[in-house]
Design a protein around this nucleic acid. Structure first.
Lengths: 357, 357
DNA sequence: CTGAAAGCGCTTACAG
DNA sequence: CTGAAAGCGCTTACAG
């Protein structure tokens, strides 16, 4: 009754048309060793039967799975959707699937995760390390996103340039006393961002760097960053190394009665989903994930399909600079010129703070 | 020179030990048809050679890839990390890999994505639809997370119960006038959450439902939700259907000078990463993703490995109720008893709002 | 232009 | 307990 009980294969098509499987294979792969008429007939038969090539067969024969692995040592990282989406698209475009693996931020699990991926026969691996864990030669093409490990196989956002763009923006708005807010001073990415910021401070400007983890270590978890006090000292802007920190800064300032951006401008990094949800919406700077993914996947597929000796181990940009993708500033409402002696956001508010007596 | 030039296979091991590949296969798969001593020798040889089974060969022979597909129609959804992590873990535990596919929130792309996954030979698919798009029978086991499609193949957080838990919490704190904040009235999930909230309002309490999209449609994009005015009307708490909305509510309130939680308590939904980053940290309610993933993956693997007729098409809970996983309330600082006539958060603030004159 | 054959690495009846 | 053989679906020299 059910005509398509079994999944059709090349033999079925061949039998239907009374030709050989080799010819069917050649016709379908379009290598052009088949007469146009026959090829047409074969293709339409394949279509009618709902033929879908079995990857296992192809993979076994060719030695290529056309699957890439994506290792996220910190899958809880809120950047993950952007990364996964970009990699998946770039891979799909290149004819590859993406197998994910979570290494739960542990080195041992990362090794395991890579192993599992390799067992599943991935042709190459994209790794996004949290800290710059050095990725050993795994005997397969590897592309590292965002933290240099083995030189030459890394692509990354240009965090330094991103930091510069933020400061240029704030300085152009007229800010002269700026707080730079980091979380963890041991992070390469954060140091790059802050380094870039510092490098663009014109003479006559003042910057103060604060690290959230240090503050918490000293004053206990959840301790306030003390930005309201800095506002009182005359700082008019605060540039955070992440949207998460910017969010914390923003709510802390608003809660302390410092209006944003009038009392203090706030900027973030990464343009995560909530940057647009807060009020004021967050000025931030965004990685060009599609570009980064294209570089990573492109390097991988080149190594895979190029074959031979180059196909094993790290691939990618020969110089560390080559793999740096510029970041883009996105200006929203949380940054503005320093307030003209605006005291606070009392304008929107009844004298008792909007709470009925 | 390089001893492990080629990837070792069963034949290599067999040759090394002068036994048949069948025996090697049996020894390694531990089916117990081999004498203990031989099995031991084979296993150690396999180990020495660094043998890793080739999935393509196994898949071709057994017809099982041991890979599951994960279709995210909205990969940009901030819940994605939680979902992907939970599914990946549950799958890995069951011996399956996870291939991701992004359908970019379009129906046509969703069909394509499923097709790509099927071509790659996945044994089953987990789908997380954004709206309740009905998933057609694709001839493979399917588990749907979160939006009922074909009845009986869905697992979901119990959004209704989650809404109830939020209101119970607020009512217990003493709130009697509560704003319920939704985004899109067409969303099943949001309606479930709000429905649950309403169902737990005791007599004598008052609730007002507002929908962000409606407000924006009427007053333009980015229009304020008007929560400060509601605070003035005597509302003391605001329960949002998502952390994103709660974040918007929180910043809007703080910006308007209404202290949180003193002037108004705020609660969210989902416990996304930023719920802990804001000040005050957000009281919210969390889906039990690991449990949901376990149900989804378990149903899939049962259908796959159970084989026979049940292996095709939707699988899972027979009744719509069976697949409902309870949500858990997480109490943080943004909810508290209604302020005892606290006016605003002036305590932390100099009279001019922290801005130097 | 077309086909017969070999083989990728594995597992599974089946025979001994 | 062990092995010889077949076959999963595909592609690729090779021969005609």
């Amino acid at each position: 009754m059910d005509t398509r009980r079994v999944r059709p294969n090349l033999s079925l098509i061949a039998a239907r048309l009374d030709v050989s499987v080799a010819t069917v294979s050649n016709a379908l792969s379009g290598k052009g060793r088949v007469s146009p008429e026959l090829a047409l007939k074969i293709r339409s038969a394949a279509n009618d039967l709902g033929y879908v090539p079995t990857m296992a067969g192809r993979a076994l024969r060719t030695g290529r799975s056309h699957v890439l692995g994506l290792v996220l040592p910190d899958i809880a990282n809120p950047l993950f959707p952007q990364i996964a989406q970009a990699i998946e698209r770039a891979a799909a475009e290149a004819g590859y699937g993406v197998l994910i693996a979570d290494s739960r931020n542990e080195v041992s699990t990362q090794t395991e995760a890579i192993g599992r991926l390799l067992e599943r026969g991935v042709d190459g691996i994209v790794i996004v390390p949290r800290r710059g864990t050095r990725v050993a030669d795994i005997g397969s093409p590897v592309a590292v996103i965002d933290s240099p490990s083995t030189p030459g196989n890394t692509v990354s956002a240009d965090h330094w340039q991103g930091g510069q763009a933020v400061i240029e923006h704030l300085v152009a708005l007229g800010h002269r006393k700026i707080v730079l807010v980091g979380n963890n001073p041991a992070s390469n990415v954060q140091n790059d961002r802050i380094g870039g910021m510092k490098s663009r401070l014109p003479p006559g400007t003042e910057a103060r760097v604060i690290w959230a983890e240090k503050i918490e270590a000293a004053q206990g978890p959840g301790a306030p960053l003390g930005l309201a006090a800095l506002a009182r000292e005359g700082f008019t802007a605060c540039a955070a190394v992440s949207d998460l920190l910017a969010l914390r800064a923003l709510t802390e300032l608003l809660g302390a009665g410092v209006a944003v951006p009038e009392g203090m401008s706030v900027t973030g990094f990464d343009d995560l989903i909530w940057a647009q949800a807060v009020r004021p919406a967050l000025t931030t700077i965004r990685m060009d994930m599609p570009a980064i993914a294209t570089v990573a996947v492109g390097a991988l597929t080149a190594a895979i399909e190029g074959g031979s000796s180059g196909a094993r181990g790290p691939v990618m940009a020969p110089s560390p600079e080559a793999g740096r993708v510029p970041m883009r500033l996105i200006i929203r409402d949380s940054s503005a010129p320093p307030g003209p002696a605006i005291k606070t956001n009392t304008a929107n508010r009844s004298s008792n703070g909007g709470i009925p007596e």
